[in-house]
C-alpha cells in the first residue's frame, strides 16, 4: 500500500520529466486502477489550483473581479475542456486506428496537466510579492507551464495511440475541431430542451389558469 501510494506520487513527476518512458509505463506497466485514481487526483488538484489562482493571485496579475468570482464555475472551466478533449479524442482515434482506450486517453491527458499545477501553485503565492516589473516572470512561467503541458499532451497522445508524430498532430488538430462541434451540439441541445420545457410549461399554465 505504502509502495503503491508512493509510486502514485512519483509516477506523475516521472512522467513530466521523462514523458516517453512515463507514458509507456502508464499504458503498459502500471495498474489501471491506480493510474485512474492518480489521474482523478491530478484533475482535482488542478481544479483547486485554478480556484486558488483566481482568488489569491497577487493584485498585479489578477484580472478577476472578486465580486464576480464563482468557484464552481472555475471548476467547471477545468473539467469541461478535459472531458470534451477526452471524448473528442476517443471518438476520433477509434476511427483512426488509435490503440488507446478511453481510460488511457483520460489518464494521459490528466498526467499532461501536472506542470500546470506544479508551476502555477507556487506562483499563486509568489505573485503576491512581486512588483509590476517582475510580473513578466510570472507570465513567462505561466506560458512555460502551458507549453510544457501541450508538449506532454502531444507525447501522451502519441504513446497511448501508438501514432507517428505527424498523425498525432493531425489528430490533435481534428480533436480541437471536434470539440467545437461538440460545444455547438451541446448548445443546440440545451437551447432546444429549454424551448421544449418552456413550451410544456406554457401549456400547463394555460390549462391550470383556464380550468
Amino acid at each position: 500500500m505504502l509502495a503503491s501510494s508512493r509510486q502514485a506520487i512519483r509516477h506523475p513527476l516521472h512522467v513530466i520529466f521523462h514523458p516517453f518512458e512515463g507514458f509507456w509505463e502508464l499504458k503498459y506497466e502500471h495498474h489501471p486502477k491506480t493510474i485512474r485514481n492518480t489521474a482523478l487526483v491530478i484533475l482535482a488538484l488542478l481544479a483547486i489550483t485554478t480556484v486558488l489562482k483566481a482568488q489569491y493571485s497577487g493584485f498585479l496579475v489578477n484580472l478577476n473581479n472578486p465580486n464576480e468570482l464563482n468557484s464552481l464555475m472555475e471548476i467547471v472551466y477545468v473539467l469541461v475542456p478535459v472531458v470534451f478533449w477526452c471524448t473528442a479524442n476517443w471518438s476520433l482515434t477509434t476511427l483512426m486506428d488509435g490503440e488507446g482506450k478511453f481510460s488511457e486517453i483520460f489518464a494521459s491527458t490528466c498526467f499532461a496537466l501536472v506542470p500546470l499545477i506544479v508551476i502555477q501553485f507556487p506562483w499563486i503565492w509568489l505573485s503576491q510579492g512581486i512588483s509590476l516589473e517582475e510580473t513578466s516572470f510570472y507570465h513567462f512561467f505561466n506560458a512555460l507551464a502551458a507549453a510544457w503541458s501541450l508538449y506532454l499532451l502531444f507525447v501522451g497522445n502519441m504513446t497511448v495511440h501508438q501514432f507517428t508524430p505527424g498523425k498525432t498532430l493531425l489528430t490533435m488538430f481534428l480533436t480541437v475541431v471536434a470539440m467545437g462541434f461538440m460545444a455547438f451540439l451541446c448548445l443546440l441541445f440545451f437551447s432546444l430542451i429549454q424551448q421544449i420545457t418552456s413550451f410544456v410549461y406554457t401549456i400547463y399554465q394555460e390549462l391550470v389558469l383556464r380550468g
Partner: peptide
C-alpha cells in the same frame, strides 16, 4: 489596490517590501 491603480500599487508595494 482599491482604486485598481497598478502602477501606484507597485510603487508603494516595492517600498513596503
Amino acid at each position: 489596490k482599491r482604486s485598481m491603480d497598478k502602477d501606484g500599487y507597485s510603487k508603494a508595494f516595492l517600498l513596503h517590501r
